[in-house]
């Protein structure tokens, strides 16, 4: 394909500029990675050669737990250590609305003009190919662009967000007193797989109770990442900034553990495996959709009229794939 050459040249220049510190280019690169395509494949091919260094920190917690404020303060700590920070903020969006309204950034805007901080919002829906594919691809880009820490913020609900969290090196679960403070809340989704637990808004009177609760749950093994790492619990008050430095240090401890045990590279590898897997699934999905679209009338009758719908559908898809 002749026409793909200039396109490829453009993408390569985008990568080069983005990696070289051009923030506008990085912004555009992330847009390319929002949906799986030949373009994003080409971009990823180059990116993974440059990525793999960054420490990916997943921060998850229910809305209202103060994640965004905490992340904002965490960025300040990392900046004081001289580290460059990328943030991917997955903003919960109702699947029912057509558009998305993203405001997580609001809490971190004070860092917007810091040339060593890059914040990107991601709507939790609307991505052809899925949220997790987009987010994972963006991690590779920020990594390649030289960000030392990549903080990924999610509410941790739904398969896509669980996938994203699994792609992180370190999972930080943010809880707060008074938000359904029982173990059931902690056992929902990614809440139970934390490497580090944060009791935010620790100035509240019920904070110590929650702390005890988490420690108890960790001892009994009801929650925790299940690796050779005893999850740690940190008390913070994001709004006052207390405990955030300690949290950053605990995250470093986990990083050291990962590096020591060789888990750091393993995680990068499994992240890429997942990325490729999601990419492949998306390719298949698109093809299947095309086939079904082409045989709409036939397919709509299969369930009612066929004796063995599974086999008939399988044959239809296989035939279609051969013809594509």
């Amino acid at each position: 394909m002749q026409s793909s050459k200039p396109r490829e040249a453009y993408l390569n220049s985008l990568i080069e500029r983005a990696v070289g510190g051009d923030r506008a280019a990085l912004g555009k690169l992330l847009t390319v990675l929002e949906r799986p395509s030949r373009d994003s494949g080409i971009v990823l091919r180059t990116l993974v050669k440059k990525s793999g260094r960054a420490h990916v920190v997943g921060v998850t917690g229910i809305p209202g737990s103060g994640k965004s404020t905490l992340i904002s303060k965490l960025i300040s700590v990392y900046r004081s250590w001289g580290l460059r920070v990328g943030v991917l903020a997955v903003d919960p969006t109702s699947p029912l609305s057509r558009g998305a309204l993203m405001a997580d950034r609001l809490r971190m805007q004070r860092h917007a003009t810091d040339p060593n901080v890059f914040i990107r919002s991601i709507a939790s829906k609307g991505f052809r190919g899925g949220l997790s594919l987009a987010a994972l691809a963006m991690i590779e880009a920020l990594d390649a662009a030289g960000y030392d820490k990549i903080i990924v913020e999610t509410v941790g609900v739904g398969q896509a967000e669980v996938d994203i969290m699994h792609a992180a090196h370190t999972i930080v679960v943010v809880t707060m007193p008074g938000a359904g403070d029982d173990i059931q809340a902690l056992k929902a989704g990614v809440m139970e797989i934390g490497d580090i637990y944060v009791v935010n808004k620790s100035d509240k009177p019920e904070a110590d109770q929650l702390l005890e609760f988490i420690n108890f749950a960790l001892e009994t093994g009801e929650i925790g990442s299940g690796e050779k790492w005893r999850p740690l619990v940190v008390k913070t008050s994001a709004i006052m900034g207390t405990g955030v430095e300690e949290l950053a240090k605990v995250i470093e401890k986990h990083l050291e553990h990962l590096v020591r045990t060789g888990r750091f590279e393993e995680k990068v590898e499994s992240r890429r495996l997942m990325l490729a897997r999601l990419f492949a699934l998306r390719i298949v999905e698109e093809k299947v959709e095309k086939i079904i679209e082409a045989h709409k009338r036939e397919v709509s009758r299969i369930l009612g009229e066929s004796d063995d719908p599974y086999t008939v559908l399988e044959a239809l898809i296989e035939k279609g794939l051969r013809e594509l």
């Binding site: 923030r23 992330l30 057509r98 309204l101 993203m102 405001a103 950034r105 609001l106 919002s121 709507a123």
Partner: peptide, 30 residues
């Protein structure tokens, strides 16, 4: 809200923004 309902993806930065912050946010969010 209206733009969201009309199918746009909207990034809301909140109040007290400087021109620098607006430009940087526009760049990062493309």
């Amino acid at each position: 809200r209206a733009l969201k309902d009309a199918g746009f993806d909207v990034i809301y930065t909140g109040i007290r923004q400087t021109p620098e912050q607006v430009v940087e946010a526009a760049i990062q969010e493309d």
